[in-house]
Amino acid sequence: MKNKEELKSFIAGLLPFATLIEGKQYLEVLVPADKWHEAAQKLKDNNKIPFDYLVSLAAVDFVTKFSVVCHLESTDTHDFIVVRVDIEDHEKPQIETVSDVWVTAEYHEREAFDLFGIRFKHHPDLRRLFLEEGYGFPLRKDFKDEINIIELSN
């Protein structure tokens, strides 16, 4: 396990276009959307700390934008980082797929597409995962369930 400073300087050298934030738990790496695939490839295929295990890929709706957040672990060194990509276009969210880098991303991305409507470009099999076609995207903040209306006041 490398210390935080070493990991930070390594990621900074590997991804010069990324913004690094020292998180409370883990190092957070903010990658611009157009460099996402390149960054993913570099994170996985480097020789020093290969982040070969994609723990989780989650989408978040921030009302004005979407974020895709990946939690990555290196099975060699057990370093753990959080990689975040912001998708500014809230109307038609699109981003490059990373399912060719980590195959497990294929299903996490399908889930994100199903629940958030984020399109992953060049995804091999982008279909709804849980819900039927035309249901809408329930985990978006502006989703209104017309059939089972249970309004809970905050």
Partner: peptide
């Protein structure tokens, strides 16, 4: 294989 297990998580 180990590679498959890691790739599929």
């Amino acid at each position: 294989s180990r590679e498959t297990a890691i790739a599929f998580g």
